[in-house]
Simulated scan of single mutants.
Amino acid sequence: MPGRLFLGTPAEHVAAERPRQNIAPGQQIITLTEAGLKLMRWGIIPVGRVNARGRPVMETLINARSETVFDKTAYEGVGRAVVPVSGWYEWTGETRRKTAWRIADRDGGPLFFAAITDVWNAPGGMEVPQVATVTCPPNEDVAPIHHRMGVLLEESDVAGWLTGSEEEARVMMRPWPNGRLRIEEATGVDWNAP
Results as ranks from 00 to 15, higher is better:
125 G>Q: 04
88 W>H: 08
130 Q>R: 00
122 A>N: 10
111 L>E: 04
119 V>N: 06
129 P>I: 01
102 R>N: 01
88 W>T: 10
123 P>A: 14
89 Y>H: 11
117 T>W: 04
97 R>M: 12
114 A>F: 03
108 G>D: 12
97 R>I: 05
111 L>F: 06
122 A>V: 08
89 Y>K: 10
107 D>C: 05
96 R>G: 04
111 L>S: 00
116 I>L: 15
124 G>A: 09
93 G>V: 13
126 M>L: 11
124 G>W: 05
114 A>Y: 03
103 I>V: 14
129 P>R: 08
88 W>A: 06
129 P>C: 11
103 I>K: 02
97 R>C: 04
94 E>K: 15
122 A>S: 11
100 A>Y: 05
127 E>H: 10
89 Y>C: 12
125 G>L: 02
132 A>M: 04
114 A>L: 09
100 A>V: 06
96 R>M: 13
102 R>Q: 15
111 L>R: 02
102 R>P: 00
119 V>K: 07
103 I>A: 07
101 W>Q: 08
98 K>L: 06
112 F>R: 00
88 W>Y: 15
110 P>V: 01
111 L>D: 08
128 V>R: 11
89 Y>A: 05
107 D>W: 09
92 T>L: 03
111 L>G: 05
94 E>H: 13
107 D>E: 15
98 K>C: 02
118 D>M: 03
107 D>G: 07
98 K>P: 00
102 R>W: 01
133 T>P: 02
122 A>T: 02
130 Q>D: 12
112 F>D: 01
124 G>P: 07
92 T>P: 01
111 L>I: 03
108 G>E: 11
103 I>N: 01
101 W>Y: 12
92 T>Y: 00
102 R>K: 15
104 A>F: 11
112 F>K: 00
131 V>S: 03
96 R>D: 14
126 M>Y: 02
103 I>P: 02
104 A>T: 13
124 G>M: 10
121 N>W: 04
130 Q>A: 14
92 T>E: 06
99 T>E: 05
119 V>Q: 11
104 A>R: 15
129 P>E: 13
110 P>L: 09
133 T>A: 11
116 I>Q: 07
91 W>C: 08
117 T>M: 08
106 R>E: 12
117 T>P: 02
120 W>K: 05
91 W>G: 04
113 F>H: 06
123 P>M: 09
98 K>D: 07
121 N>M: 06
125 G>K: 05
108 G>L: 11
104 A>G: 14
130 Q>I: 03
112 F>A: 08
97 R>L: 08
